[in-house]
Nucleic acid binder design. Sequence first.
DNA 1: CTGTTAGCGCATTCAT
DNA 2: ATGAATGCGCTAACAG
Lengths: 313, 313
Amino acid sequence: MTVSRVLKDEHVSAATRERVLAAVRELGYRRNEVARNLRLGRPSGMIGLVVTNLANPFYSRLALGAEQVAEQHGLRLVLGNTGEQVQRERELVEDLVSRRVDGMIVVPAGATHRHLSSAALGGTPVVLASRPPSGIDADTVLVDDFGGAQAATAQLLAEGHRSVGFLGNPPALFTGAERFRGYWAAHEEAGLTPREEWVRRGPYDIPTAEAAALELLDREDAPTALFCTNNRITLGAYRAVLRLDTDTALAGFDDFEMADMLKVPVTVVSYDADEVGRRAARLLLDRIEQAPDKPPGPARRTVVPTSVVRYGV
Amino acid sequence: MTVSRVLKDEHVSAATRERVLAAVRELGYRRNEVARNLRLGRPSGMIGLVVTNLANPFYSRLALGAEQVAEQHGLRLVLGNTGEQVQRERELVEDLVSRRVDGMIVVPAGATHRHLSSAALGGTPVVLASRPPSGIDADTVLVDDFGGAQAATAQLLAEGHRSVGFLGNPPALFTGAERFRGYWAAHEEAGLTPREEWVRRGPYDIPTAEAAALELLDREDAPTALFCTNNRITLGAYRAVLRLDTDTALAGFDDFEMADMLKVPVTVVSYDADEVGRRAARLLLDRIEQAPDKPPGPARRTVVPTSVVRYGV
DNA sequence: CTGTTAGCGCATTCAT
DNA sequence: ATGAATGCGCTAACAG
């Protein structure tokens, strides 16, 4: 008991304090935070972070941003990787609740999110990142997929391109659908309609993107520019451009190193991935720190802006 | 008590089991793993991972590898980022011990590691990754910095280059020192001695590497090839090569996308970053699962191999 | 097969 | 200013 008081810095006589501290040093005693939290009726002082693929730099930056904010509030980050498997996601969030995390940030893998609602998780606060909730209400942080794609495509059109191809994720992915919508909207705004023959919504990595681009650029009516929905696909398209030695202009979502050193002009949609993590952590902390008796307040949504960067030849 | 038995799947009558499970579903009851671990006298079922910079893909891959192995054993990963600050590292490992992690993997930031010994941490098992222990004994996973650098440099020499410059981290960093040693050894093995004027041990990112390379390549007796100690530096060097339009050959530690699409030949030291994390987690699990009464056994060290990949023009 | 007792390490509350 | 009792949620050990 006296030790507890000393460590909490309560009124203890200087003499006993010293004796206690000496013993603490000698024994290497460390207060058991687990037992402490249990006794205090508090959660674990950790926040869960469930991502789909930590190998993707976007998510590791997100993790870093979240860690920064969590750290400032004395919270640790518990990490889980789902590999886009909904089953794994279910197990992970369940486990995090059982470990009594203060809250969690989730990049949802599947199409249905009922198991991610705060209610389904026994009231544990949840923030969704990168993909919006479907079928539930939840705080969310998104990237401006639509706006970024639109602006980049508009840039190609403004440069005079009238045949802009599309290379991107399947529409089942929210980001894929949004970025396609942006591509389309830019055309409409310019009074144009994209040709479906120039749209490839299958490629998902460098080789498949390269193949799709080769096929597209090999047509008689090949597009003179390509919009790519992420940097893997942009790189694949660039490989195709190099191989065919065309001067196809490229635009793509996600900035990447060396974008300024390619042999064709590249326009890139850039954004701050750390910021996605920081905002998610802040939304979560708002929920966590809110008095638990008050009514929860409506779900909030914030969109991280993008900017278009044009790299010359 | 009965609930506890049902959840542990012990001998309970089918009838009560059903009643309990029904109630569990209805109430959304989840066993408190924190209290459970406390009662069972076990640690938290989590392993700590303390890295210097999660924005570096090497460390996020390491984290991914560690997570994979941890997950297979039902352990979660708690993440900490030090930003190379020893003070932060001290606080983090202290906190992890207080949270009763089963063990931790640390990429040590500073030069002195006494605060990272298992003994200093109250017996919590520790594995060091990427950098070797100094002043303490600890299980360690390293990358073959020396061998990789030597092989890549040897490759340049085998191609006929007789003036190979060095661009790399300050020698204070273990990896920097080892990679320099490899560079040097390759020369000695070929009966050569590198010229100190061609050695730049300052650059640490793309711009500083580019500047150093520009300066080096602008000399009258400019080297015809450069060995770079990591991919940031290789990219910086490549920028310089592009700018000066020389045909300097490049070799560098760390593989990177597009290495095969540059306009000069690039030789790259490639290795499996995930494997570093996996091995670290396995070493840690060995310690964790070892009977606590047995004598600890000597510290083990394992080195992840590298391979040299030559990309043509 | 099910309930009771006791205690993991801690801190709140109530004594002294 | 310090110590004793009590209980956070759980389960091993022991009844019944």
